[in-house]
């Protein structure tokens, strides 16, 4: 009797899954993306426009860039939308993605406590800022999670010639968490950290933190979008995924990105190659 009940329930649940609370039999794609796009509020602003125009729902799984790439490699997403160009190019070169398109960019900023013990406020050179933080052994919170932001931070330390691995656990703290959590930690500790501007602008628990270094071209943060290769994963929704990419690169999509503001400030800057779509 138990067995029959269980079978009934599983069947019911499978139906439930099919017809789910996410509206009956809708067309959807799954996009593996980063916490920065989600946490900045961009997706909430622009996705409804696409969904209304195309009748395709976009399901965003927002994780670190490293995890998003691996998720797409396993075929668990139709489109990859992240911000670490070397990883993205690698992804395409290895045959997991069809082609990488520039979508938009913003920049990273170094944030830290207002009283700025390392004295980096107003520097134009991000590397110099990191050197001063290290020299002063001021607490710096790293994402430490293989995300796009983390990868960028590591390469900046390398450029500065500082071995943060040796300092791990002392003034260099790895949160192993998303951007928001890392900002919460930095805010709580009065520490420095590297963040993308979108998450920063949408972040509501800044406490004593302010932007100290911005504008260095090495802080440039480009986002790319890639259709997962259907030859690798035949179940990929090629048509729908491509429609989403085409829309992002179209004047409509690019305009929507440009129009998204937080407190009147632009967050992302469209950068699609005009010839691509």
């Amino acid at each position: 009797m138990f067995l029959r009940l269980i079978i009934c329930l599983i069947v019911t649940l499978l139906f439930l899954h099919a017809n789910g609370p996410a509206a009956a039999a809708e067309r959807f794609i799954t996009v593996a993306s980063t916490t920065s796009t989600e946490n900045s509020g961009l997706f909430q602003a622009i996705l409804p426009l696409f969904e209304r125009a195309a009748g395709i729902a976009v399901r965003v799984v927002a994780v670190g860039t490293g995890q998003a790439v691996r998720m797409a490699e396993r075929g668990d997403a139709d489109v990859l939308f992240v911000h670490h160009q070397p990883s993205e190019e690698h992804f395409v070169a290895d045959g997991f993605g069809v082609r990488r398109h520039d979508v938009m960019y913003n920049d990273f900023v170094l944030v830290g406590p207002r009283h700025d013990p390392a004295g980096i406020g107003g520097l134009a050179d991000a590397i110099e800022g990191l050197v001063r933080i290290a020299a002063r052994q001021a607490v710096f919170v790293s994402r430490g999670d293989d995300s796009g932001t983390h990868k960028r931070e590591v390469s900046l330390w390398q450029a500065a010639g500082i071995d943060v691995v040796a300092a791990s656990g002392t003034w260099y703290r790895e949160s192993g968490a998303g951007m928001g959590t890392t900002l919460n930690i930095a805010s709580g500790m009065g520490a420095y950290t590297l963040t993308d501007r979108g998450t920063w602008l949408n972040f509501n628990n800044r406490g004593d933190l302010v932007v100290l270094v911005a504008g260095d071209r090495r802080l440039f943060n480009p986002y790319g979008v890639i259709l997962v290769n259907p030859q690798r994963h035949p179940h990929v929704k090629t048509a729908e995924g491509q429609m989403f990419i085409d829309w992002l690169l179209s004047p409509d999509g690019q305009g929507a990105i440009a129009a998204y503001r937080i407190d009147g400030q632009p967050v992302f800057f469209p950068s699609a190659d005009k010839d691509t779509p």
Binding site: G20, P21, A22
Partner: peptide
């Protein structure tokens, strides 16, 4: 679940998300 808005977003994942946005 992936914490997908309107699909797999539940109370706890929403709390995690809002915390990471600093909306304590």
């Amino acid at each position: 679940g992936g914490n997908i808005n309107h699909v797999t977003r539940v109370m706890t994942t929403t709390i995690a998300l809002e915390t990471s946005k600093g909306n304590l």
